[in-house]
Design a protein around this nucleic acid. Structure first.
Length: 457
DNA sequence: TTAGGGTTAG
């Protein structure tokens, strides 16, 4: 057992308990310490504030701050940054701004971390312009930026689809002597991959080497996923082999990327082999690995195994997430078990996951494929948010039911709102209208779609 | 105290 001899050892002990979310014991250690004359300091309380914030949210963090003040210990910049990062984690922008103000009011000067966290928060809530203002503010106030300042900026720009701006910023900074870290390149490569800018990615991969960086497991996984996305399957699998040879498959990331791509393209047997290799490699499996395994069982039609694994995972104390449940709902729909899927959708809601577009899309698709178009339409109309998947399933469902006019209306509505459609959906509607004797209408739909597309692009 | 890769639907 760890012996508490000083405030430092008290802090180390409390920090390790907070890390494993054991706040009860952390509090007990604090009381024991005080009893034997080892008094807590600002580090002790900052650690506790972080622990409470992570487990129970910002309000409980503030109540620890109250206790801290009662104990006569003054908060410092780290105390406020901890509260700030908690607010940012929950995307509470206005609370973040309040904390920033409060910090100034109590006479604590925000440091580069405070600005970094605030900038990150603006990006998270989809306000890149405001984030950029914070970024500029750092320089205007003569605060020395940290490497994270730039990386948060690049991540935010890429995640908000401003990859061109991110690249321009990189070039500007480089002209002023900025030397990008490997992390910076990984962020940009991921953003560019997701925007389909494969040629620029290739250029950056060369540049990494010019700077003397060695691409790591993250670089490889990012590029491998990009290959799969661009239907460059063999190239992706070659990268996977290279990763194995280099010892970069020490966790589940690469295996799950490969298995996910194989499952999406119907290569079930190969996905099975890939997951088997992951198992045999003896790496620690996390929730994403289990989700991929559950997905594999569902795709193989082994629903019992999928639910059995769900039970096992829960018994192990791992927390199932929105992916787990969506995979299961899709599995149930594909197996024709609509009632089961409906039950699971309700369960999802009960568990506080909120409405999930992907799960509802799976449900609508399941209903359409089973010919329950009336029910599918009811669900469709009740959905506030719809995307290309929702429209695609319902249009195909309506076509299968011979309701081509309604399918055409929805298809047009979809294109007019800027949502892209599959060529197969358009084909099904046009062909259906023609074959049922509505040739002129089919032509009109075709030209309307063309016009809507022109107006949008 | 902040930043990078993997898992869901047509």
């Amino acid at each position: 057992m760890f012996k508490i001899l000083s405030t430092t050892s008290l802090n180390i002990c409390i920090a390790s308990l907070c890390r494993v979310k054991n706040l009860k014991n952390a509090e007990a250690v604090l009381i024991d310490g005080i009893r034997v004359g080892i008094l807590p300091d600002v580090v002790t309380y900052n650690t506790l504030i972080d622990g409470y914030c992570r487990l129970f949210g910002i309000d409980s963090g503030y109540s620890v701050l109250g206790r801290m003040m009662e104990a006569g210990i003054h908060p410092n910049v780290i105390t406020y940054n901890t509260l700030l990062s908690c607010a940012s984690r929950y995307r509470l922008l206005y609370q973040s701004l309040d904390i920033f103000d409060e910090m100034l009011q109590v006479g604590i000067l925000p440091d580069v971390w405070s600005y970094n966290i605030l900038m990150h928060c603006f990006f998270k809530v989809g306000k890149p312009d405001e984030a950029y203002r914070v970024f500029k503010d750092i320089f205007l106030r003569n605060i020395y930026p940290s490497p994270a300042t730039f990386n948060i900026m690049f991540t935010g720009l890429c995640k908000n689809w401003y990859t061109d701006n991110a690249l321009m910023l990189l070039r500007n900074l480089q002209r002023n002597g900025f030397r990008p870290e490997l992390v910076t390149y990984n962020i940009l490569i991921d953003g560019l991959c997701k925007s389909g800018k494969w040629r620029t990615v290739k250029g950056l991969l060369k540049e990494i080497l010019d700077y003397g960086h060695i691409p790591n497991a993250i670089t490889y996984t990012t590029v491998m996923k990009c290959c799969f996305k661009n239907k460059m399957f063999n190239e992706g699998l070659e990268i996977f082999s290279e990763m194995k040879a280099k010892g970069y498959t020490f966790d589940g990331f690469a295996y799950c990327t490969v298995a996910g791509a194989l499952l999406r393209t119907g290569r079930i047997e190969e996905a099975n082999q890939c997951m088997g290799n992951m198992f045999r490699s003896g790496i620690d499996l996390d929730m994403v690995c289990y989700n991929t395994l559950i997905n594999l069982y569902c795709k193989e039609g082994k629903l019992e195994d999928a639910f059995g694994l769900l039970d096992e995972v829960e018994k192990m104390g791992l927390e199932c997430d929105i992916y787990t449940h969506t995979i299961l709902i899709d599995g149930l729909c594909k197996a024709g078990n609509i009632q089961g899927a409906q039950r699971h959708l309700k369960y999802l809601n009960k568990m506080g996951f909120g409405t999930n577009l992907v799960a509802f899309n799976s449900f609508i698709d399941g209903l359409c494929k089973l010919g329950q178009i009336e029910y599918a339409m009811q669900v469709f109309e009740s959905m506030k948010v719809k995307d290309e998947f929702t429209y695609s399933s319902i249009v195909q469902g309506l076509c299968s039911a011979g309701r081509f006019h309604l399918a055409a209306r929805l298809l047009l509505c979809c294109v007019r709102s800027g949502v892209r459609i599959l060529r197969s959906d358009k084909k099904a509607v046009i062909r259906g209208l023609r074959f049922t004797g509505f040739g002129p209408q089919a032509k009109k739909v075709q030209s309307n779609i063309r016009l809507a597309k022109l107006l949008h692009y």
